[in-house]
Design a binder for these strands. Structure first.
Lengths: 331, 331
DNA sequence: CAAGAAATGGCAAACGCTTGCCATGTGACC
DNA sequence: GGTCACATGGCAAGCGTTTGCCATTTCTTG
């Protein structure tokens, strides 16, 4: 068997040419005679030659690898981003390294340091780093961001302006005149954007909106949020994300409050589960898979050019109306 | 700023030693004088030296990277495996490359080929390859398997023997005398193990069990399965996995069949969502995160030794009883 | 105090590939 | 026929490490 893997030199020897010719046969097709190239490729195929990525990376400085950093791999919101990034990387012939930053900015910074020599660029989702930290890191290795806009860097964000309008319009159509925003973590960039959008949309509609929280963006954050909402007498709530919304609905059910009969509930993300919780959840869907893919594409365009900064891509959002919202009951 | 990254030679120069000494200061601490080592490390720190992984890999043949291959990144069952593997890799100071095989054996084989030069080993979850293909691949690069046992290779599997007994005991305790197994894909190794276990446990209990399917292991597989179950007149069903179970319950609800009133439903996996679907789902939980972590640990022990084969680790499972199961109603 | 062992550090050769530069061969053009 | 440009392929110098081997120094030991 292959006691030793064939190298460039083996192929060169077999084809009767120099290693440089073999190398160029692969990387610069037009730099070598058509017939020579054929021969080299045939030999390479016959020997089962596969280039050694480490050696390629050493000389060229390119690893053909990019890293994706997410705060929590198991959060279904990021599953889509991961899948999209994986797809995008595969399409571009790149290998994807996955890093979990455990929702910690320290872990995130450490991971960036540890990987920056090993990868050609980063896609960072929901980064916890400051704008300055990000920009500093970006001077060493290209970075694009998902769900976080930082001037001068490539970013892919969801269109919350439009999305929050959709939510507000939907609630208004059911006769709601006010609602409560159940907030997530204070540091969350997307949380801030959502709240801004909701305020603006509500203002346009002349609706009243209050904010509650912050709460944990998890199922366990639900009970506290639910109780606060009940105390407020709201007819509708918009939650920081679906998980929180589901936790909240569960608590409301325990307390005998009907959804959407007495309170309408809207979430964000359209995560796995939003269509089979009870009641099914009206939520603003983001194309997370697209976001991951686009972020990789954006990164790829940056890498060769080493251009400073990058454009921001805004991805559409869609309101998915399900069972958790309904008309106001004037009791 | 750092117009050029510091190399071993820079550190060696600054510390007044040879590059070999710097290298050893890092990799073979006892091979170098304590005081010299201190000095070297201090200089390295001061210069912000980070070793170039490509160069390390080139000479040593070790990339300090492992790959995790899963059939579908977005499947919540694998989220736990991914997280565990990521944790395990981080603990071992390894970088984790993630690959999605798109539930295709061809894609899986291709990914293995593409990555085998770039990683020190593979963890493959729910592999679609044949035993022979796996063993062949394992001769070139160490491999451990999750949820798939293949003789001569390191494997981490869930204890379905015990788990299926728990399920059957639970159903029996509610008075069920028979149940239907709603099967998933025919090629699924874990599906086969589950079915075997259920049959054995049912036989011990003197319970009758039939098999239905195969069905798609997705929400959309649920309706067909539900209708078949209804036609069978079963009082209890055990589904190939939670997603299928949830899809099935949804269909039952549409058809006005009460769960667990008329039919009890049990799933496998305890995926995200099993505790907030309606009714909440009784299911056999696997420690998927542990599985991922253990698989990496197993791989790590194999890598340096290059030992052929490896042990099989069996992880416990726990029945999580929720709302979808209940006593038989003798109508 | 001599002789051998251990500790320590340096030299230089890989590792497998890319790439700048040069040599040769070929055809085009005047 | 001579000059030039261009196409093609080879040479060899790295890229930043690791590591086998040797030289030197220091420590033991009898």
């Amino acid at each position: 068997m292959a006691d030793r893997r064939p190298t460039l030199a083996d192929v060169a020897h077999a084809a009767g040419v120099a290693t440089s010719t073999v190398s160029r046969a692969f990387s610069r097709p037009q730099r070598v005679n058509h017939r020579t190239r054929e021969r080299v490729l045939a030999e390479a195929e016959r020997l089962g030659y596969v280039p050694n990525p480490a050696a390629q990376a050493l000389e060229s400085g390119r690893t053909r690898t990019i890293a994706l950093l997410v705060p929590d791999i198991t959060n279904p919101y990021f599953s889509g981003v991961i899948k999209g990034a994986e797809r995008g990387a595969a399409n571009a012939g790149l290998t994807l390294v996955l890093g979990d930053t455990a929702e910690s900015s320290a872990a995130e910074a450490q991971l960036v340091r540890r990987l920056e020599r090993a990868v050609d660029g980063f896609v960072i989702a929901a980064s916890r780093l400051t704008d300055d930290e990000l920009r500093t890191a970006a001077t060493r290795t290209p970075i694009t961001l998902v769900n976080r806009a930082t001037a001068g860097m490539g970013c892919v964000v969801a269109d919350y302006d439009s999305g929050t309008h959709q939510i507000v319009d939907h609630l208004a159509s059911y006769g709601h005149r006010s609602f409560v925003f159940v907030g997530g973590p204070a540091e969350s960039w997307s949380g801030a954007r959502r709240w801004q959008g909701l305020q603006a949309a509500a203002a346009e509609r002349g609706m009243e909106v209050r904010r509650s929280g912050p709460y944990l963006p998890t199922l366990s954050g639900g009970p506290a949020a639910a109780d606060a909402v009940l105390a407020s007498g709201a007819t509708a709530v918009v939650c920081h994300n679906d998980i929180l919304a589901i936790g909240l609905m569960r608590r409301l059910a325990e307390r005998g409050v009907s959804v959407p009969g007495e309170i309408s509930v809207v979430g964000f993300d359209d995560v796995f589960g939003a269509d089979f919780c009870h009641p099914t959840l009206t939520t603003l869907a983001e194309r997370t898979e697209d976001a991951g893919r686009r972020a990789v594409e954006l990164l790829v365009t940056q890498v060769p050019l080493r251009q400073a900064g990058g454009p921001t891509r805004v991805l559409p959002t869609q309101l998915v109306v399900r069972g958790s919202t309904g008309p106001v009951t004037s009791m």
